[in-house]
């Protein structure tokens, strides 16, 4: 099999991932499309490693690392999405407008913060 097939496949997978990141409103689905992009990279790495017959097998080593990193990211990502859901009761990514660049800061955040600050 010529090396170009898997590379093209990887590129396509990557593009699908990019589309997923840009088009989906739900944060979790965005996370999943990022995973897709990372796996596209893994495919690419393994393909090149085989194609180059690299004695050091550095391509596969990096693939393992990327898998580990992807796992860590998903864990953290979901924790943060959970946090956002608890504060905003919605994880629609494009509705997070509180940190926009305006002169006056938006409505003062939930009472819990105000009380905690006052207690200082």
């Amino acid at each position: 099999m010529h090396v170009v097939y898997p590379v093209v496949l990887a590129a396509l997978l990557f593009s699908v991932g990019v589309y997923g990141v840009l088009a989906r409103r739900n944060a979790i689905l965005v996370l999943m499309s990022v995973e897709l992009m990372l796996n596209a990279v893994n495919l690419n790495l393994v393909t090149f490693d085989a194609w180059l017959k690299d004695t050091l097998a550095s391509g596969q080593a990096l693939t393992l690392f990327v898998i580990a990193i992807a796992a860590a990211e998903v864990g953290l990502g979901l924790a943060i999405v959970l946090l956002v859901f608890r504060n905003r009761s919605s994880i629609a990514v494009d509705q997070l407008r509180d940190l926009a660049d305006r002169d006056a800061p938006s409505a003062v955040p939930g009472e819990t913060v105000a009380e905690r600050e006052a207690a200082r």
């Binding site: 840009l22 990514v93 494009d94 997070l96 407008r97």
Partner: peptide, 11 residues
């Protein structure tokens, strides 16, 4: 351009 929406940033 800085309207807080991460998806705009990603775009």
């Amino acid at each position: 351009s800085q309207n807080g929406n991460p998806q705009l940033y990603l775009t």
